[in-house]
Amino acid sequence: MKRTHLPLNALRVFDAAARHLSFTKAADELAVTPAAVGQQIRALEDVLGVVLFRRMTRNLELTPEAERALPALRAGFLEFEESVRLLQEAQGSKTLTLAAPRDLTAKWLGVQLAAYTALNPDVRFVIVSADDGIDFTQANLDLALVFGPAPNDEGIHGKPLGAETLVTVSAPGHASDGCFIRYPGDAMPPEGCSTLTVADAGLALDAAAAGLGRARVPALLAAADIASGRVVASGDPEPINQAWWLIAPTPQWRQAKVKALVEFLATRV
């Protein structure tokens, strides 16, 4: 019989009935009715073309064919159980591999992962840079954090960390400085001048803190530095059509470890 045609559920019922030599006890184990067990056994006998049980007055008795087949069947179920255990063990690994931009890791994500491991000391993280694009297959990633519009790649599911805004920050006492610090992806105000260009928003934030000018950066990156007084914000936050997204291939979201981390990070913004 082809693998795709194996009556696995009926074979499971047969195994239970053979262990108990009772449809009633097998039904109790499987949480079904004795009639359902009997129906499954009769259907299995029809499919296989053999008789599995002799129905005695008070109990059941296995036929010789059934007795010969049971050891191999039970060995097969043990192999199934081992396969399931290995699958769950792999998915249940306490190591999560994340991709994130360097500036997000430095300014926000690292602190959040430290808080998470304080609550879950057996969890380990591997962080790779997302600055040059993300390949979930090649990097064996569990989750990635990116900045931009809602993801629309086929097979990728995303959850936003919340609406994002841009804030203009500078070192204390430098809020009136005219020049902006530039970085790739930043749209400098038309009236703004620029005397410094850096690699990312995190470095722009650090340069602003050093008194090298003003920087327009995502509010999530600047929150800790504003709270500590390292930089000050001026003007009103600017709404944008971009956000920080947690993204992964749709099947990854079924992993318990991914769900737990996503739920935690969503509460930290």
Rank of each mutant, 00 (worst) to 15 (best):
G158F: 00
P149E: 15
H157D: 15
L161E: 15
P149T: 09
A171F: 01
V169K: 05
I127R: 11
A163M: 05
C179L: 06
G173Y: 00
I127N: 14
D135T: 02
S170I: 02
A130I: 03
V123W: 02
A150Q: 15
G158N: 08
D142R: 07
L161I: 08
T168I: 09
S129M: 03
I134R: 04
G133F: 00
A144H: 07
G178A: 06
L166N: 14
A171Q: 08
N152S: 12
D177I: 05
I134T: 08
G178H: 03
Q138W: 00
V169A: 14
P160D: 13
I134E: 10
H157N: 15
A163Q: 13
H157C: 13
D132S: 10
L166I: 07
G162M: 04
K159G: 02
S176I: 07
G162V: 03
V167A: 12
F136W: 09
V123D: 06
E164T: 03
F136G: 11
A144V: 05
E164S: 01
P149S: 07
H157P: 12
S170P: 01
P160M: 07
D131K: 04
G178W: 02
K159R: 11
P151Q: 12
D153I: 04
I156V: 10
D142P: 06
N140S: 08
F136E: 15
L161R: 14
C179Y: 02
V167W: 01
H174C: 13
V167D: 15
C179V: 06
